[in-house]
């Protein structure tokens, strides 16, 4: 399953964002941020204690089951009064949750987390970014490993000179995408795929911001409406 991977913002940054706002309502989420221990029950409780110690009045807190879900509206209604009493919502979910909540309530929101990437759990407690939704998939030529995402520089024609014992020049905890791809293609007897020159990428596969509509919502000529 893919997950939204987050990390808590530095305490000073949260303090700055909450400066002058005395009454805070805290919202966590029961899904990805619970898994990464960045915005589940435990972290919401710890945040509540920390803010109380700093003299804030926490008007209430809640952990939404799935903050990015459309049902979030109903869940928030249950805490209407406590939310109304607050000056600001401190949201300990990923940015999908923050934006979903912000669209439902007439309140300023402060994210307590930074959303790092959409990742896949590749080992227990370890998440890796494996797709950046670029809109021009080349996995068919790289043995199913994405260099656009997995290579720090997004190189599509092989490794840079910084590759070091199978690791990336920026971090020896990160694998060199092109060592992985090389090994996979070699195993499959398809190194010819790596030898093929890849022309410059189309960076406008879906010009940002992405938008998609189901076929039934499109106009008769198939265009987005």
């Amino acid at each position: 399953m893919i997950r939204s991977i987050t990390q808590q913002k530095p305490e000073e940054e949260v303090d700055r964002l909450l400066d002058g706002l005395g009454r805070v309502f805290i919202i966590g989420c029961g899904t990805c941020v619970t898994l990464t221990h960045t915005g589940g029950e435990t972290e919401v409780k710890a945040m509540k204690e920390s803010l109380t110690e700093k003299g804030k009045l926490v008007t209430g807190d809640m952990v939404l089951p799935v903050a990015c879900d459309n049902l979030t509206k109903e869940a928030l209604n249950e805490y209407g009064e406590q939310i109304d009493q607050s000056d600001v919502l401190l949201i300990m979910t990923c940015a999908f949750g923050v934006q979903t909540i912000a669209s439902q309530l007439k309140k300023m929101v402060v994210p307590a987390l930074d959303t790092l990437f959409i990742g896949k759990e590749t080992a227990f407690g370890e998440f890796n970014e494996i797709c950046t939704q670029c809109g021009t998939c080349i996995l068919g030529e790289t043995g199913g490993i994405c260099p656009v995402t997995t290579c720090h520089k997004g190189l599509v024609n092989g490794p840079c000179g910084g590759t070091n014992n199978g690791k990336c020049e920026i971090d020896d905890e990160k694998d060199c995408a092109w060592t992985l791809i090389y090994n996979r293609l070699k195993e499959l007897g398809r190194l010819d795929a790596m030898k093929k020159f890849q022309k410059p990428r189309n960076h406008q596969g879906e010009p940002s911001p992405g938008k998609w509509k189901s076929v039934s919502l499109r106009s008769s000529d198939g265009q987005k409406v």
Partner: peptide
């Protein structure tokens, strides 16, 4: 450029040829 002492060397050589 090329890095003749890269490890592993083979991916580097494929890039060199490209």
């Amino acid at each position: 450029i090329v890095t003749p002492e890269a490890n592993p060397l083979e991916p580097q050589l494929i890039k060199f040829e490209k």
